[in-house]
């Protein structure tokens, strides 16, 4: 796991205690695109399964995930695909 990935993973674990988090680096798929710097770690996909999402709509859930990794958007992170589900929805 690269340095950016480690920081994203750890930021998400802090923001969503007890959540199941699956983070995937998809940078290789975007190599050479605008917004994809050399060295990768620019495009990620994440699934966060957390019971705290109960009662939050999609926009609110995505905002929470984006907010957790906000600092990375000013670094290498360019795009983050998000799936934010409650454990029930993930079944």
């Amino acid at each position: 796991m690269g340095e950016t990935a480690k920081r994203i993973q750890s930021a998400l674990e802090t923001a969503f205690p007890g959540a199941y988090i699956a983070l995937q680096d998809e940078s290789a798929l975007h190599e050479g695109h605008a917004g994809a710097p050399d060295g990768g770690e620019s495009h990620f996909a994440v699934a966060v399964v957390w019971n705290g999402f109960e009662g939050m709509n999609r926009v609110a859930r995505h905002r929470a995930v984006n907010a957790a990794v906000d600092a990375e958007f000013s670094g290498r992170l360019h795009a983050l695909r998000i799936r934010a589900l409650t454990p029930e929805e993930a079944e």
């Binding site: 999609r58 926009v59 995505h62 695909r81 998000i82 799936r83």
Partner: peptide, 12 residues
């Protein structure tokens, strides 16, 4: 009204 980005649109 803001609906969402690509992931939300696709999911909906």
């Amino acid at each position: 009204e803001f609906v969402g980005g690509a992931d939300i649109v696709r999911e909906m």
